[in-house]
Nucleic acid binder design. Structure first.
Lengths: 227, 227
DNA sequence: AATTTTTGTTACAATAGTATGACAAAGATA
DNA sequence: TATCTTTGTCATACTATTGTAACAAAAATT
C-alpha cells in the first residue's frame, strides 16, 4: 500500500514543521510550502490531501482552493483549511469554495491527525479509487495489473499508452488539451514536445482496434474518448 | 435529482426539530429519532447521512456508530457526531470509531449545514458537479466535451465558433464589442481584423439554426445573445 | 433621397493543426 | 555487451479552420 501524500501550506514555518513531524509519524509523506505561490510550483496532482492556511501572503488559502477546484485534474483532492480567525463567515466561505474541513487555530495536533485520517478514509482508496478497473463495452482497463483487454484478450500497451487511455477513459467525453495530457501522463521534469502526444495517440489508436475510433481529435482543443 | 435523506438522532427533541427545520429548508429529507433504540428500528440504509448525538439514553452515539460501521450494508454511510462535551478524547473516539465529522455544542446551524453539505459532496457525488453545461431552451453547450447540441442533436462548431457562442450565451443579454470578443476568444499574441468576428458570427448563426436569430447585432456596439 | 457608415456574405488564400512513417535515442532485459 | 522494447523527434503530406478582401446589403446620417 503506497502511503498517502499530504501537502501542508502555511506561512508559519514552525507550524509546518510541527505538522510535518507529527503527520510523518503517522506514516504519511508530507511536503510543505510556505506560500500559495510556492505550492503552485509543485505537482499538486501527486497529493492525496492538501492542508491550506487561510491567511497567507499574496494568494490566500481560499484563492488557492479556488484554483485547485477549478482544475479538472485537481478538483477531487480533499482540502482542509487552517485559520487563526474563528469567524463563522470565514468558515462558511471555506466550505462554500469546496473545502472539506475547517480547523481553527489553536488546534490540537491530534485533532488535525484525526480529521485528516477521517477525510482520507472517505476520499482515497476505500471507495472511489478502489475501482480497480474501468469498463467500456468490451474494453477493459485493469488498473492493478495495468493491462488492457478487449473481449478478454490482452492488448499490450506501453506505459504511456496505458496512462493516456486511462486518463481519457476515466473522464470520457471530456476534452483534454495536449498540455493537460502532458501534466497528467508525463512527470514534471521531463520536457517533451506536444507533438509527441500525437504520435502516442496514433500508436494507441492502432492497438485498441475498433475503440481507436473512440479517441477523437478535437481540433484546436486536444483529444477526447467519446462513448 | 432525488434529494438526500438525513437521519438526525438526538434525545433533545427541540434540537431535533431545529435541525430538521433548517435542513429541510436546504432541500434535504430529514427524519428524526430521539434515541438510538428508536433509530435502529428505522431502515438505516435509506439514509445518505446520519447525525448522532453522543450522549443519549441507553445506547450512546458512539455505540450506535459502531453498530453502523459493523454492518456491511450501512458502513459506508457518513456519520456526524454532535456532543455537549468539548473533550479532545471524546472527539478522537468519535473519529476512531469511523465518524466523519464531530461538532461540539453549542454549534451554529450554519456550520452544521455547511459540514453536512461538504460531507455529502464527498460521499454522494451527484452528477450535477460534473455537469458543466449552459442551457437555453433546446440549445445546449457542453463545456467538457466542447460540443453544441440543439434538440439533443450535435451541431458541429469549430473552436472559435464555440468560444464566441460560449461567451455570448454565458452572459446573455449583454452586448460585447468586437474588441471584447477578440480579447476573450483570441489569444493575446494574435492580431486579427475585427471584421473577422463578423465572418465568424455569420458562420455561427448559420450553424445554430433558429438560435441564429438570438445573436443580434447592436450596431455601433457589437453582438449580443438575446433571450 | 443621397450619402456615409456599419454590417453581412461569399470566395479564396493562408495558416494552423493533425496523422503518420521513419529513424534515433533512451531504457530495459537477457 | 547485445538485443529488444519503449519513447521522442523529425519530415512530410494532408486537412480543417480561419483570415482577408471584395462587394452587397442594411442602417444611420445628412
Amino acid at each position: 500500500m503506497t502511503p498517502y501524500r499530504i501537502l501542508v501550506t502555511d506561512d508559519e514555518e514552525d507550524l509546518c514543521e510541527i505538522l510535518k513531524f507529527n503527520l510523518e509519524a503517522e506514516g504519511y509523506i508530507v511536503d510543505t510550502a510556505h506560500s500559495a505561490e510556492e505550492a503552485l510550483t509543485l505537482d499538486l496532482k501527486n497529493y492525496n490531501l492538501i492542508v491550506l492556511d487561510v491567511m497567507m501572503g499574496e494568494i490566500s488559502g481560499f484563492k488557492m482552493a479556488s484554483i485547485i477546484r477549478g482544475n479538472d485534474l485537481l478538483k477531487h483532492i480533499p482540502i482542509i483549511f487552517l485559520t487563526a480567525r474563528d469567524s463563522e463567515n470565514d468558515m462558511l466561505t471555506g466550505f462554500n469554495i469546496g473545502g472539506d474541513d475547517y480547523i481553527s487555530k489553536p488546534f490540537s495536533i491530534r485533532e488535525v491527525q484525526a480529521r485528516i485520517k477521517a477525510l482520507l478514509r472517505r476520499t482515497s482508496p476505500n471507495e472511489e479509487n478502489s475501482k480497480d478497473e474501468i469498463l467500456y463495452e468490451t474494453l477493459r482497463l485493469d488498473l492493478r495489473s495495468k493491462k488492457c483487454y478487449i473481449d478478454s484478450c490482452e492488448q499490450a500497451l506501453t506505459k504511456k499508452e496505458f496512462e493516456i487511455l486511462h486518463l481519457l477513459l476515466k473522464n470520457n467525453n471530456q476534452v483534454f488539451s495536449r498540455e493537460e495530457i502532458l501534466t497528467y501522463v508525463w512527470s514534471d521534469e521531463v520536457y517533451v514536445l506536444d507533438r509527441t502526444i500525437d504520435v502516442n495517440i496514433t500508436r494507441l489508436r492502432k492497438k485498441i482496434g475498433i475503440y481507436g475510433k473512440c479517441i477523437v481529435t478535437r481540433q484546436g482543443y486536444g483529444y477526447c474518448f467519446e462513448t
